[in-house]
Design a protein around this nucleic acid. Structure first.
Length: 297
DNA sequence: AAGGCGGGGCC
DNA sequence: GGCCCAGCCTT
């Protein structure tokens, strides 16, 4: 079966026009400060826009510049990260800020390859920062873009094929607006379940319009305790330490965070602490048989 | 290639 | 109660 080819120019016109009238007004779209752009992108990794909107301004008041962030202690950044989840991101961001200050005197690299080498910055975030802050003509592929591109192409695409298509379809003169428009379409219209095709600016050219099948999602079982994934307990431990800045003994944390903990489960809890320590989220001072745990200094 | 890693809102 | 969400890192 031959694949229907859609005129890129037609696509650009339809989507950019829609973006002009329906695009979201977001704080990180009102700046070109690479630090503010980067902060938004890190926060938006696996976190909804609505939550980032609530926490982004407060974080920026605490750390208005990359230098202020770089000179903070990890524990302070972890505390400022409260409510965001995936706490390792706070450490990546912090280390990233320190690298940019130390290596470039606080000047961001523009080269996406160089951005990509920084902690917490992958292919998506590197291109997002370069596209948004420096207006380089680079495609970005996140879960929204992946879904939109696949539907417009009318078939499932491999990850690499989506990137290729995204870069091919990119309007070089309006790359930034195009990227933002694709994400807005994926977030507001071309949503995963029950897409709103009747309101879609691409409905006349999209082969999937009004005939999107329910995507079959694969159930992923996570290791955990009584059905609760380990990462949830990790999050609770970090939150407990946020409010108890002096730290606490491992056994006290265990009683407070997991009241129903049975004696035989102590090794499981000890592994949680060790994993947090390995990530650099907590510091463990061992003295004799007991150990004192606090947020990483 | 697969799995670990938070949190909250929505159905 | 299950599902989803602007990914990255490690193995």
């Amino acid at each position: 079966m031959s694949v229907m080819r859609i005129s890129p120019r037609r696509l650009h016109l339809l989507l950019l026009r829609w973006y002009g009238s329906h695009g979201r007004d977001l704080p990180w779209r009102r700046t070109r400060d690479p630090y503010r752009i980067l902060l938004s992108e890190i926060m938006l990794q696996q976190t909804q826009v609505s939550r980032v909107l609530m926490l982004y301004p407060k974080f920026l008041r605490t750390y208005p510049s990359i230098r202020k962030l770089a000179s903070a202690k990890p524990s302070e950044v972890i505390i400022a990260w409260r409510g965001m989840g995936y706490n390792r991101r706070a450490l990546y961001l912090h280390r990233c800020a320190q690298a940019i200050v130390e290596e470039g005197g606080g000047r961001f690299p523009r080269d996406p390859e160089r951005l990509r080498s920084l902690p917490g910055i992958g292919r998506y975030t590197a291109n997002a920062v370069a596209s948004s802050a420096f207006r380089l003509p680079l495609a970005i592929v996140d879960t929204n873009v992946r879904r939109v591109i696949s539907r417009v192409q009318g078939r499932h695409l491999t990850e690499e094929a989506v990137w290729k298509n995204a870069q091919r379809l990119l309007p070089v003169r309006h790359a930034y607006e195009w990227n933002q428009a694709l994400m807005d379409l994926g977030a507001m219209i071309c949503i995963a379940h029950d897409p709103r095709c009747a309101e879609c600016p691409l409905r006349t050219v999209c082969p999937s319009a009004h005939r999107v099948k329910r995507p079959l999602t694969r159930v992923v079982r996570e290791p955990g305790r009584e059905g609760v994934p380990n990462r949830i307990f990790r999050g609770r431990i970090v939150e407990y330490l946020r409010q108890r800045k002096r730290g606490a003994s491992s056994s006290l944390i265990a009683r407070e965070v997991v009241p129903s903990l049975r004696p035989g489960e102590m090794p499981w809890f000890a592994r949680l602490i060790r994993s947090l320590e390995a990530d650099g989220l907590v510091r463990v001072v061992r003295c004799g048989r007991s150990e004192r745990v606090s947020l990483a200094a």
